[in-house]
Design a protein around this nucleic acid. Sequence first.
RNA 1: GUGGAUGUAACUCAGUUGGUAGAGUCCCGGAUUGUGACUCCGGUUGUCGCAGGUUCAAGCCCUGUCAUCCACCCCA
Length: 461
Amino acid sequence: MSVHFKNIQQVQPPKGTRDFLPDAMILRRNIIEKIRQSFELYGFSEIDSPVFEYFELLARKCGQEIEKEIYTFNDKADRKLGLRFEFTSPLGRYYASNSSKLTKPFKRYIIGKVYRYENTQNGRYREFYQADADIIGVYSMFAELELMDLAVFTLEKLGLNNYKIHLNNRKILDGIIEVSGIPADKKETALRILDKLSKIGENKTVKEFVENGLTEENYKSFINLVHGNSFAEEIDGGSPDIDKLKNNPNIIFLESLKEKLKNNARSLEGIGELIDIFKNSNKFGIDKYLMFDPLLVRGLGYYTGPIFEIKSLDVNIGSFAAGGRYDNLLELYGARAEGACGLSFGVDRIIDIINAKNPNWSNELTSPTKVFIAYLEPDEKIIDYAFNVAKKLRSKGITSEINLNEKLNISKQLKYANSRNISYAVVLGSNELFENKIKLKDMKKAEEFFVTIDEAAEILK
RNA sequence: GUGGAUGUAACUCAGUUGGUAGAGUCCCGGAUUGUGACUCCGGUUGUCGCAGGUUCAAGCCCUGUCAUCCACCCCA
């Protein structure tokens, strides 16, 4: 029985998923290749793992909100499975399962599709690519620095430089929550509300605090720690150390926070880690991108230390890369405890940003096909010759496409080559066949060369 | 999951108080029988997202549904 798909909606891809046309695919592959090359330049090894895992494994420690977004299904033996929504949980399982065969530190990367069942919006898809680099086996902040350096390097390769890396530390957040008198079980709620502060303003934030069983005092003590005497006020107040301040306001900010949280060991540890990162960041040349953001939260439940998000300054699309430290995750899957830290690029968002910044990129494209072979008459000998030319060019590594529709006249064939943005055409007729040469045409300059195949191959290289 | 906006040709969009659809670009043919882009001439664009309902009559009004976008929520 055949099913007829009559309605347009039935031939549309499912909600939140997309088809990619050949031109769009050229850009996608180009970007993914650049990311891959960067990962490999930094010594990360590619691995692969299943698109689906046991649901329990994915749901463990990921956080309630994310859990709702996992695509789940039962297989025919009634196992409950889920599609991966990111690469960190699968990495935990992968490492626990294979650690005896892996050398440490284990630096791996993976690029692939992940799935989230959530409402769609610009830059938010249900199926999207992530490119993920992680380091297992390093407790020091060199892991964070290496990953952020890798991020900056990669983004530079992609032509992106107008962004900020927002940096915070779960340990600082935990300490501030504690010192503010916010009960441990209200921590997630409080952080969620505070995350919106810049959007909804102070009054609404307090209102939401009260509505959720917190107090105005909780808010005030939290905000005093985070904003009260921020480095901005210290500038107004005429800090004696103004030069140092200019050099790295982030460190000044953290030092002032250190003073206020001096009785909270957990916070001090976190502050120390971030100061360590900021102090070293100039050696990596990434300091200008870094910004301490005490309100950065991140939803995933497994982070334990520094966390970061990278946000574009010229396209409003949320963060397009993020990461952090998750030292407890491996133990959770039965492996020995290890320091672990990861970085994840949202490939589709990066593509959206590049498209937004240069909507005309597809007009500037040249096809991966280097040469199009056209023939003047559908004569058997000429066509045989054309196929022979194609074979020889391909054997020399030159990407070649040959006209397959003998009904097209030369004009149509060249028009086709032009619309595909193919840089060169080969025009073959009886003269070429007789001389055993080819006419090579540069489509952009409209120049023609009557040459042998070997000579043409040299020009095309 | 909640609230709002939108959906008309391949694309970008018009379409009046209800009277069965247009523009530009693209595409196709020709000017051009060994040459694409530029120019000129001619031509096709269509289940008006889908399914019902009201009406003599629906692109327009009503209901449902699907998709996209925006704001929540959350995130890459």
